[in-house]
Design a protein around this nucleic acid. Sequence first.
DNA 1: CGCGATCATCGATCACTGATCACTTATCAC
DNA 2: GTGATAAGTGATCAGTGATCGATGATCGCG
Lengths: 208, 208
Amino acid sequence: MPEPSRRSPRKAKGAGPERREEILAAALRLFGQYGLYGVSTRQIAQAVGVSQPTLYAYFASKDEIATELHVRAFRELEGRLRTGARDPESPDDVAVALRIYVDFGLENPDAYRVAFMFEGQHGQDMPEHPDVSASGHAAFGILRHMIAELQARHPDGGRDPDGLAQSIWAGMHGLVSLLIARPGFPWTDREQLIDRHVRMLADMAMAR
Amino acid sequence: MPEPSRRSPRKAKGAGPERREEILAAALRLFGQYGLYGVSTRQIAQAVGVSQPTLYAYFASKDEIATELHVRAFRELEGRLRTGARDPESPDDVAVALRIYVDFGLENPDAYRVAFMFEGQHGQDMPEHPDVSASGHAAFGILRHMIAELQARHPDGGRDPDGLAQSIWAGMHGLVSLLIARPGFPWTDREQLIDRHVRMLADMAMAR
DNA sequence: CGCGATCATCGATCACTGATCACTTATCAC
DNA sequence: GTGATAAGTGATCAGTGATCGATGATCGCG
């Protein structure tokens, strides 16, 4: 017995980490559908099948639920980028990574909303949760690294990979967030729009 | 006396339309500082110097206050674009318009938030407030028109001005919304970032 | 088996939110 | 004066996020 007096893991009905996951799943669905401020903790609790105070046994606040979803979304994105991103030989390789980004956002609009289209909070006071900041920077770091790598291989290209990466990231985020937020807008052919947008931004990594 | 039985305009202390403007001014300042959901109607009322129910004599709801600010902001944007946008001879003229767009967003972050980065609502059910939608589309229409005009003058450029305008708009929106939503991010020099971003997107209006 | 200890859970409740209503107050025309 | 009318308010409502003490259920241990 390596641990002298370990606490005993209760089994109960659906207690433990599973409850936590249930709560997160319900919250993700509800937040994505009705928005963070359009969903009450009581609604989340009801969707899970527990009472409202129970949520506070797993999370310190409603905001912490949203933050956890936020962090997970970034981790998921980071994983996809790490898997799909090669060492960039040409802008086309960058385009592949950008496409991964778009697909992730459109496939997980709920998570993307919670992650990027947040309201207020971040404004001034809140220094932004460390994990949130870290997971976000990690995903962004992959993109930045790709662009820096590409520019290094082609010294005739532009400089300042940091600023360029931020520009390209912003360009991607704009398209994804608008496609999600305004499905009723008379967009031109979606696939063509995305494809051209991605290629344009990827080409920017070398132009000038 | 053209009007048979007109209602008598009360003077009182600060009644009438002026009160309405005071409320809007206070709400704009508070919303911008603490966010829409970080400000209560009681705080707004206190800032104006009236009781909370008084607000409901001028506005049907807190949301209506935000909507009014939203519509006004977009009218302002539309006006700025109309004033500052010339018939585009070159991408530089488009860049000027884009720069107006960015400056507007950064100067009116809360209005911009309510306009584009809203939560839920637009999702499915709500058909989006007519005035809001109209003012938004009007501003976008100016940009689209500029790009179509530029392409028409230089037939060697690309086609599909609609799709291109959407791409450029998305690119602008992405930068503005991220700069607003994530002030804590280690952005490179802001002015340089914006300037290059704008020029890049403007150049896209003719490339290929 | 029984008996604390422990932990998940819940009803009750708090301060606060947006919104409503009956009531008072102040100003007007006459 | 007097009534009419609009402006403004205190009291209050249902619903919110969050807290707390009590209730069980489950465990290791005798």
